[in-house]
Simulated assay, not measured.
Amino acid sequence: MTTYLWNPPPVASLPVRGTDQRAPVNRLFFVGRNYHAHAIEMGKPVDKSVERPFYFTKSPSTLVESGATVAYPSETHNYHHEMELVVVLGKGGFRVKAEDAHELIFGYACGLDMTRRDLQLVARDKGRPWSLGKDVEGSSVCSEIVPMPGVVLERGAISLTVNGQPRQSSDLDKLIWNLREIVADLSLFYHLQAGDVIYTGTPEGVGPVVAGDRIDGQIEGVGSIALHVGPAA
């Protein structure tokens, strides 16, 4: 029996629709700029013919479930919402072919990639890592997982409101790199494993929230997500 100096953190996990079992989460991957309109609004258009997807990661400790209240984070004055489709892997793979990518998929969820936008942009413009802008406590929000083993979603409305006012509205068919391409490309860099979670990118309309705001998002065929922004800690 191993004795630790202090208690290790609990295993990050998410609820699964239709069961009382929870899915343990291994790693959190995020695809950057995967909708053309969002890439343009960020001032960094994407040319798929000459570019590949790029990724960043967050600690599983940033994961919170839909419906939570999260404190407005420190050291930012421009905290943004980003609504995303989340892919949850149920099997591992390395150097997976795109046509076989569906074999790794366990299911899907709705996600929010909450971002200290001011810190992210300063880091981006100086060529520094995005960690302080992205790997933020309570910033990886996720709904329950909807099991869809082997299913590859190709279309479906994705939207977000803040206090009932529309902010983001698009369709999964506008992803620059589709789900097969994302899983296959990511598997060239990592030995993917069951429990790996991939946030697939956000459409245009990202914007700031303040303490007291309520965020609600929906993805057709997947479900919904909610987040309350609390006062600064």
Rank of each mutant, 00 (worst) to 15 (best):
M1F: 07
L5H: 14
L5D: 14
W6L: 11
N7T: 12
N7V: 05
P10A: 14
P15V: 01
P15Q: 02
R17V: 13
T19V: 09
Q21I: 04
R22C: 05
P24G: 14
L28T: 10
V31L: 01
R33T: 02
H38T: 11
M42V: 03
K44I: 15
V46F: 09
S49H: 04
V50H: 12
F54M: 05
F54L: 03
Y55N: 11
S59L: 06
P60A: 11
S61K: 10
S61H: 10
L63V: 11
Y72F: 14
T76W: 04
H77N: 15
H77W: 00
N78D: 15
H81T: 00
L85C: 08
V86R: 06
V88F: 08
V88H: 07
V88E: 01
L89Y: 06
G90D: 07
K91L: 06
G92F: 00
G92C: 00
V96G: 10
A101V: 01
A101H: 02
H102A: 08
E103M: 07
E103I: 00
Y108C: 07
L112K: 13
L112R: 14
L112G: 04
L112N: 13
D113S: 09
M114P: 06
R117W: 14
R117E: 08
D118E: 13
A123V: 13
D125T: 06
G127N: 13
G127C: 12
R128P: 00
S131G: 02
G133T: 04
K134T: 00
D135V: 13
S140W: 02
V141Y: 08
V141C: 08
S143R: 13
S143I: 12
E144H: 04
E144Q: 05
I145D: 02
V146N: 01
P147S: 07
P149N: 04
V152P: 03
E154M: 07
G156D: 02
A157W: 05
I158M: 10
S159C: 09
S159N: 10
L160A: 13
T161I: 01
G164V: 10
Q165E: 15
Q165C: 04
Q165Y: 04
Q165S: 15
P166K: 10
S169W: 00
L172N: 09
L172Y: 11
D173Y: 02
L175Y: 05
I176R: 06
N178G: 15
N178W: 12
E181I: 02
E181A: 09
E181K: 03
V183W: 08
L186N: 01
L188P: 00
F189W: 08
H191S: 13
H191K: 14
Q193N: 06
A194Q: 07
V197K: 03
I198W: 09
Y199T: 02
G201Q: 10
T202H: 06
G205Q: 08
P208V: 04
V209I: 11
V209K: 11
V209E: 05
G212I: 06
D213H: 06
D213K: 03
I215V: 14
G217P: 09
Q218H: 15
E220D: 14
G221F: 14
V222K: 09
S224K: 13
S224W: 05
L227T: 03
H228S: 13
V229E: 02
V229F: 05
G230P: 15
P231F: 01
A232V: 05
